[in-house]
Computed example of a mutant assay.
Amino acid sequence: MPRGIDLHIPFPRRISRDVDRARDQHLHWPRSHGLLEGEEVVRRHAGARYAELAARFYPDAVGEELDLGVDLMSWFFLFDDTFDGPDGEDPARAGLLVESVTQVLRRPATPADPPAVRAFSDLWRRSCDGMSPQWRQRAAEHWRTYLSGYVLEANHRQLGLMPTVEEHLLLRRETIGVYPTVDLAERIGGFEVPEHVYADGRLTAMRHIAAEVDTIHNDLCSVEKEEARGEIHNLLLILERQGCTRAEAVEEMRRMIRSRTERFLVLETGLTGLCDSFRLTEARRVSVHRFADALRAVMRGDYDWAEQSGRYATENTPREQETAP
């Protein structure tokens, strides 16, 4: 994405006060699980600044709670990079890898499992610590949906099917990773939104907005990488295929982000009324507002992080022929 594009993210810039310590230590966890092998892989991972991303997603977190968020970001992106190779082109291969990770939601990993699976097992165990069965069920379903998206995308690539704008946003809303990220905000923050409130249409709409804003922003940032390797799951490229120039596509994506963040602010003003309608206790009202704040953080945090991250550097554009880490 060209530098200096104002995407109208009308939320304050925030970052954890513990970011420096987390940055200094953030390579330890992926290394301990065998996810980082080779100097070039380590260099790219460090340059992407995932500790800073977690510190923006969870700006109030410190210590072990922030470390959990950092480790999640490391896993997210290392796992995602796996599908830049043959696993992302073949639905059968993608399915095997996805199923091996999904099984962890039912039982812990074993020493015989691949590194990515063992690492996810550690994340899932730590994420569930202290959380209710209802939260665990919801979070597990979000993970299943997220993971299954890799298989669907591989099928699209194999068949050469470029989705429409609506199809792309619907798919990426579920697979951009926002829902597991915000689930973890509850765990890190020590609160839970009651499930009947979580399912309310207003909170659902706010979650959808956050996921779509991050999707649109991600597609702007990664378009050069993805265009170079023939990727079809990118909103800017979809808009161009529909007849937009690149400048027109960028402007349309800016408009889409603006309309969504403005709608988010309108919905947010109704949270007090939502809490009243459910007759929530003060503690549960606080949880609802903290959840909305977590949604703000994933939109603003992603935007601020991308300005400094090496994740989207064009030197990494060729599709790398890698297997699972």
Rank of each mutant, 00 (worst) to 15 (best):
I15K: 07
S16T: 09
D18A: 10
D18W: 08
D18Y: 07
V19T: 05
D20L: 13
D20S: 14
D20N: 11
D20Q: 10
D20W: 05
R21T: 09
R21Q: 13
A22P: 04
A22C: 09
A22Q: 08
R23W: 05
R23D: 10
R23L: 01
D24A: 15
D24C: 11
Q25R: 15
Q25V: 12
Q25Y: 06
Q25L: 14
H26T: 10
H26W: 09
L27Y: 02
H28E: 08
H28A: 15
W29H: 06
W29V: 07
W29A: 03
P30D: 00
P30M: 02
P30L: 00
R31P: 02
R31Y: 00
R31T: 04
S32F: 00
S32T: 00
G34E: 06
G34D: 02
G34P: 03
L36S: 03
E37H: 07
G38T: 05
G38Q: 00
G38V: 00
E39V: 12
E40P: 01
E40F: 02
V41C: 04
V41N: 02
V41H: 06
R43H: 09
R43A: 12
R43Q: 06
R44F: 02
R44K: 13
R44C: 01
R44L: 03
R44T: 03
R44P: 04
H45P: 01
A46H: 06
A46T: 06
G47I: 01
G47Y: 02
G47E: 12
A48F: 01
R49K: 15
Y50T: 03
Y50R: 00
A51T: 14
A51D: 13
E52T: 05
L53G: 04
A54Q: 06
A55Y: 05
A55E: 07
R56D: 08
R56W: 12
F57A: 07
F57H: 12
Y58E: 05
Y58F: 15
P59C: 14
P59E: 13
P59M: 11
D60A: 15
D60H: 15
D60I: 04
A61K: 12
A61Q: 13
V62W: 11
V62H: 12
V62D: 14
V62T: 15
V62A: 15
G63D: 13
G63R: 14
G63L: 14
G63W: 13
E64L: 15
E64A: 15
E65Q: 15
L66N: 10
L66Q: 09
D67S: 14
L68V: 12
V70H: 07
V70L: 11
V70D: 06
D71G: 07
D71M: 08
L72W: 12
M73V: 06
M73A: 10
S74H: 09
W75M: 09
F76A: 03
F76K: 01
F76L: 09
F76C: 03
F76Q: 00
F76Y: 09
F76G: 01
F79G: 00
